Computed example of a mutant assay.
Amino acid sequence: MESNEISFENLPKAVAHLVSEIAIIKLLVEVKQPQQVPQKRIPIDITEACQIIGKAKPTVYTLVRKRLIPCYKNGKKLYFFEEELLEWISKGRKKTLQEIESEATADFKKNFRKTSAEFNLKSKL
């Protein structure tokens, strides 16, 4: 419905049209997920990297020299990306005793079945 068609006589039609349009817009807004703005990968220097991982500069230089930490070098400067550092930290997670025990039990059960089946086969021959 165009704005030049609105008059006192067709005002109820115009209001009904606007109500339906608002309902459609409301539905679209409710359904739409919040837009995630892609973060720019901004490199950080060694000072910021030290703060993120909680290590001293000489320690970070040693980790870089041993190629244990993700980094980039341009000329004489080292650069890091915060996401990569956080991922590097999370990969170093130590398992709890309970996790180690459950994995060991699962491996033992799996291997026990294999060895007992092989033993039964050999004894039949």
Rank of each mutant, 00 (worst) to 15 (best):
E2L: 13
S3G: 10
N4R: 15
I6Y: 09
F8G: 12
A14F: 07
A16D: 00
L18W: 04
V19W: 07
I22P: 00
I24E: 12
K26G: 01
L28D: 02
L28S: 03
L28G: 05
V29K: 08
V29G: 01
V31L: 03
K32Q: 13
P34F: 12
P34E: 10
Q35F: 02
Q35A: 09
Q36P: 01
Q36T: 06
V37L: 10
R41H: 06
R41K: 08
I44R: 05
E48C: 01
A49Q: 02
A49K: 00
C50G: 03
Q51R: 14
Q51K: 14
T59A: 04
T59Y: 00
T59V: 03
T59L: 02
V60W: 00
V60A: 00
V60F: 01
Y61N: 02
T62C: 01
L63F: 05
V64L: 09
R65K: 14
K66Y: 14
R67F: 10
R67K: 13
L68M: 13
L68A: 12
C71P: 01
Y72F: 13
G75E: 06
K76S: 08
L78E: 02
Y79E: 12
F80A: 02
F81E: 01
E83P: 03
E83T: 06
L85F: 07
S90K: 15
K91V: 04
G92I: 07
G92C: 08
R93T: 08
K94M: 06
K94N: 05
K95R: 12
Q98H: 15
Q98D: 15
E99G: 09
E99L: 11
E101T: 14
E103S: 09
A104P: 05
A104E: 10
T105N: 15
A106M: 15
A106G: 12
A106W: 15
F108E: 08
K109A: 15
K110R: 15
F112T: 02
F112S: 07
F112P: 00
K114Q: 11
S116A: 13
F119N: 11
F119G: 06
N120W: 11
K122F: 11
K124A: 12
